[in-house]
Design a protein around this nucleic acid. Structure first.
Length: 728
RNA sequence: GGGCGCUUAGCUCAGGGGUAGAGCACCAUCCUGACGCGAUGGGGGUCGCAGGUUCAAAUCCUGCAGCGCCCACCA
């Protein structure tokens, strides 16, 4: 409260706040003003009435077009464009306003669009913003025929007390009877609805408080132009600047019950005194008849102070000194003007500095049908419902992070997405359980046997190092979805699907190998512990829980240091070797599945590769055997391409498998299918290599890559064809 | 009337000049000592439409259409 009053008084003192009768958006139901930003424009079917205004002295009249016949009663002029030939002679003469038979002048004004309707506009300064301006410029009187509730005033005779819409019909009918309606045509128009109660708003003149925007916007525009405040995604910068550059003064008074009452006192002598406490007498006239302004401040006026008022302002607190300016504001696009812009203006005005340096605009959450969340539509989603349904706060947070890509302005959300994440949660939890189970006797602070990481360990460490870099970069770029996705893929598809399975080979080895065991433990722990720290911002609870159960340093994962990519070197060699191992495992699995062999069937694939790969596969035989479930695996090349075998070629490794007579048909089918797809591929890409333009104009490395690719395909085609012949 | 976003597999979405990806759903198999909220293998898309640029376009450019949003005092 102190902050709000202080802020108002300072602005008042600087002359930024002024008071007076102004035309504003008025809600006849709530009986308050509504700022331009809180008006919802919707188009409605209405009519356009063409009404004839007879010449005052019996001369030719003028026909105007209007959507609001009831306001005819408040007309004070008819306006035409100064260069409109049709009405040249009419300007300066007078016409009679129908029904009330008031003589009003025909004036000329450039703001009249000659192309609309008849080119003649009735001027009603009491009930239309444009008319109000034109009326003021032409020094025309302001007549008012509607009261605050939207009913016809007492001096409207027959119409007194009628609701504005009933009056519209009544007046139109009476004009019709009088023969003054030339025609009535259907018309689609825009009306403003009250954001709060959906009532059609009325342009209305009342006592209002305004805040001047000219001086406040200048610095607020500059800081954004200069990049001192940045929007993410960047395109919102333009939206912000466009609004700021075309801003109108801010109507800050409301006639509602709940809010900060404007700290200004009206003296019976007509003076205004802005003060924190009620003064005893008026400083100007000494009068003692003082009463405080009844109106309250727009809620966004106080919200604008949020970045510093919450830190203790106007007191100079340690929090204020330490935290202001803050760095990131995360919010929705719907309040860029209402809130963000005003925080920037007030921050600069009262603190002399920006309130934050970065504004992250998140997508708006919708339901799966693309409807906005809304209480009245029943499309609202209550986060707590999902939490209580057992998905957990982590799942909700992570699911939202996963889907808040920067390009999107909306985010469709459904329960399925929570299921996906819940499953991921479960996966992490169980992986952690597995690791903990095998961490018995492991102490990361005690040096183990000489660090002799194998290919599989070097591979996962290298991959982990890359993930640290990726996640860090994504978070810094506000790409929360990419960060979340990178972790999802790494944890599930690499750490769990591959490393954990490979680790089992060493952990369950008989007799045990203490060195390998230590290396595996160390690696499992290193990667899991670090991954939890990376995941923590988007999954705070489960990561803390797991982290606490692992050997660690420090009290809480919240304050644990962020993993550094430089601590985990990229190992291209191990990644390349692991790629070969993985390709071979996958190929064997695929062969077996396509041949319909049960996993219990003891298969004995034979591998052929050049010496380097062969040595790699031989030294990692156990891993391949276990993951591919191929106990009889050999590298005895005599078994290659023999009659009655099926095979394939991946990553330079040929895999051959002897099959039973009964499986030959399926084997032939598989080979034929693969050959067909290779044929399509070569056919398509061959033409590329055959195209001289491609070979000469495309970058050498692209051409080289293409040659390599075709080479591999040819080799594979050759091998597959040989197997197919052997099976014929 | 201006401005912005979106349009890619049944669904929700990534990708963003070198010949299409994920999750879910679907099909088949497994049931293995972290996890069936699981594992393995697979099927599925002329990347909204029409032009243009380029050796090469889902990707860049120009139009158009549909959906959505935001600004705006044409009665």
């Amino acid at each position: 409260y102190d902050a709000v009053i202080e802020c108002f008084l300072r602005l008042y003192k600087k002359g930024y706040i002024y008071y007076g009768k102004r035309m504003i958006n008025w809600c006849p139901k709530d009986q308050t003003s509504v700022s331009d930003l809180e008006v919802n424009h919707t188009s409605v079917q209405s009519s356009l009435w063409y009404i004839r205004y007879p010449g005052a002295d019996g001369g030719a009249g003028i026909t105007i077009a209007t959507q609001r016949p009831e306001t005819v009663l408040a007309d004070v002029a008819v306006a035409v464009h100064p260069e409109d030939e049709r009405y040249r002679s009419a300007v300066g003469r007078e016409v009679l306003v129908p029904i009330v038979n008031r003589r009003v002048p025909v004036i000329a004004d450039r703001r009249v669009d000659p192309a609309f309707g008849t080119g003649a506009l009735k001027i009603t300064p009491g009930h239309d913003p444009l008319d109000n301006e034109i009326g003021a410029d032409h020094k025309l009187p302001v007549l008012v025929i509607l009261d605050a509730a939207g009913k016809m005033t007492a001096d409207t005779g027959l119409y007194a007390g009628m609701d504005r819409f009933a009056a519209r019909e009544a007046v139109a009918r009476d004009l019709e009877t009088a023969g003054l309606i030339e025609r009535q045509e259907p018309y689609t128009t825009n009306v403003g609805l009250c954001d709060r109660c959906k009532t059609v708003l009325e342009p209305y003149i009342t006592d209002q408080w305004f805040c001047r925007m000219d001086e406040l916007t200048k610095p607020a525009i500059d800081v954004v132009r200069q990049g001192k405040v940045r929007f993410h995604p960047e395109r919102w910068t333009k939206v912000y600047l466009d609004w700021m550059e075309n801003i109108h003064d801010w109507n800050i008074s409301r006639r509602l019950w709940w809010g900060h009452r404007i700290p200004v006192y009206h003296c019976a002598g007509g003076h205004l005194i802005a003060a924190r406490e009620a003064p005893a007498t008026c400083p100007e006239c000494g009068g003692t008849d003082l009463r405080q302004e009844e109106q309250i401040l727009d809620t966004w006026f106080s919200s604008a102070l949020w970045p510093f008022a919450t830190l203790g302002w106007p007191a100079q607190t340690p929090d204020l000194a330490y935290f202001y300016p803050t760095n990131v504001l995360v919010t929705g696009r719907d309040i860029i003007f209402l809130w963000v812009a005003r925080m920037i203006m007030f921050g600069l005005e009262f603190m002399g500095d920006v309130p934050f340096t970065d504004v992250y605009i998140n997508p708006m959450v919708q339901n799966l049908e693309g409807q906005r969340m809304s209480k009245s539509l029943g499309t609202g989603l209550d986060p707590l419902d999902y939490v209580e349904q057992g998905y957990g706060a982590d799942a909700l947070r992570y699911a939202l992070a996963l889907r808040c890509s920067q390009g999107q302005q909306d985010l469709r959300f459904g329960e399925k997405m929570l299921e996906d994440v819940r499953n991921f949660n479960n996966k992490i939890w169980n992986a952690a359980r597995f690791v903990r189970m095998h961490l018995e006797g492991f102490d990361p602070t005690v040096l183990g046997p000489a660090e002799s990481f194998g290919v599989i360990d070097r591979w996962i460490r290298s991959r982990y190092g890359r993930v640290i870099g990726e996640v860090t970069a994504h978070l810094e770029a506000y790409d929360f979805d990419k960060a979340a996705r990178a972790l999802y893929d790494f944890i599930w598809s690499e750490y769990c699907d591959w490393y954990l399975e490979l680790a089992k080979v060493d952990l369950y080895r008989q007799p045990p190998d203490p060195t390998r065991r230590w290396v595996i433990q160390h690696t499992l722990w290193t990667v899991l512990e670090g991954t939890m720290r990376l995941l923590h911002p988007v999954m705070p609870h489960i990561t803390e829980e797991i982290w606490q159960a692992l050997p660690h340093r420090g009290e809480s994962i919240v304050v644990a240091p962020w993993p550094q990519a430089r601590d985990m070197a990229i190992d291209e060699e191990a990644e390349g070797q692991m790629a070969t191992i993985m390709a071979v495992v996958r190929a064997i699995r695929s062969l077996r599945a396509d041949l319909g062999l049960l996993s219990a069937a003891p298969i004995a694939p034979v591998l052929r590769a050049e010496s380097q790969s062969r040595a790699l596969l031989e030294s990692h035989r156990e891993y391949v055997v276990t993951l591919a479930r191929a106990p009889g695996l050999t590298t005895d090349i005599d078994g290659i391409r023999r009659p009655g075998t099926v095979g394939t070629l991946v990553a330079g490794v040929e895999i051959s498998l002897e099959i039973a007579e009964a499986d030959r048909a399926r084997a032939r089918k598989r080979l034929a299918g693969e050959l067909a797809s290779i044929g399509i591929d070569i056919g398509r890409t061959d033409s590329r290599l055959a195209d001289p333009a491609f070979v000469t104009r495309a970058p050498a490395e692209v051409v080289e890559e293409e040659r390599r690719r075709i080479g591999h395909l040819r080799a594979r085609e050759h091998a597959l064809a040989a197997y197919l012949r052997a099976l014929a």
